[in-house]
């Protein structure tokens, strides 16, 4: 707990240092490290073409029951980060719902492969993470970052990820930090890699279409990532935040 607090405070300090530079005049996030980010993005795209895309295509050829089961198990595991963040955001109802879902699906649902909790009324809710919690607490997103292998992020979201590996993620704690007889470090990295492949496989066509129709793919991905994070922090599933863009009203016609 002490380590989490120390990390949080240190990183919030870094955040405050970059916060003033982080927003441009028109309210868009500022890309303070654009040259470096573009280089990292090009590296990630190469990695995607060489590894993630072919693996995802192969994964898509598996029977849909296997893919659904894998996706369910990974979602179930993500509750270990979602529940503490539900609590930190004061959303105790979702915390209770997700805790019950985790217990039922891990046991009766066989490590989350099946989702019996949904059929008895505990419906799946949105994932939460420490980056979102910082956003809910009013911490600005800071500069946009592209991390090697991991992809788009912001200073705030990177801080959130660091909190996860500093004690905030129970799955990380039992695998990487405290090896047990049942799970070990490789299980953690395997689950993260599989999450990436699962996500990529679900978005194969969408990403291809985006790649084909973009004239600056880097800028497109940055815009989509930042819009998505804003939506998740505001939990604005019902009302579209993106609709509230005053620029539409300034058009002359």
């Amino acid at each position: 707990m002490k380590r989490i607090l120390t990390t949080l405070l240190t990183l919030m300090l870094i955040q405050s240092l970059v916060a003033q530079k982080a927003t441009s005049d028109d309210g868009d996030a500022k890309d303070c490290f654009e040259s470096l980010n573009r280089a990292t993005f090009a590296f990630n795209m190469g990695l995607d073409k060489a590894i993630f895309k072919p693996v995802s295509k192969g994964y898509r050829m598996l029977p849909s029951q296997i893919r659904t089961g894998t996706s369910n198990a990974l979602n179930n595991l993500s509750n270990l980060i979602t529940v503490p963040n539900n609590i930190l955001q004061g959303d105790f109802r979702s915390a209770a719902n997700n805790s019950v879902r985790f217990i039922i699906n891990t046991t009766i649902g066989i490590v989350g492969i099946f989702d019996p909790a949904n059929s008895i009324g505990f419906e799946k809710s949105d994932k939460e993470d420490f980056g979102q919690t910082l956003g809910v607490m009013g911490v600005g997103e800071g500069c946009y970052l592209v991390l090697p292998v991991l992809g788009p992020s912001t200073v705030r979201d990177t801080v959130g990820s660091l909190v996860s590996i500093s004690g905030g993620d129970a799955w990380y704690n039992i695998t990487v930090k405290n090896d047990t007889n049942y799970v070990n470090e490789s299980d953690y990295y395997f689950s993260k890699g599989l999450s990436g492949v699962d996500f990529r496989a679900k978005n194969l066509e969408a990403f291809d279409a985006m790649e084909k129709s973009s004239i600056d793919l880097y800028a497109t991905v940055r815009s989509l990532y930042l819009q998505d994070r804003k939506k998740k922090i505001n939990n604005s599933n019902d009302k579209t935040e993106a609709m509230e863009d005053g620029d539409w009203d300034t058009l002359e016609n």
Binding site: A219, S223, L224, Q227, S236, T240, E241, A242, D245, W248
Partner: peptide, 21 residues
């Protein structure tokens, strides 16, 4: 004038892409 897919605005994305160039 715009399509918003899962909360992501295509027009806004296009605007940010063009502005970046």
């Amino acid at each position: 004038r715009d399509l918003v897919i899962e909360g992501l605005s295509l027009a806004r994305t296009q605007k940010e892409e063009f502005n970046s160039i």
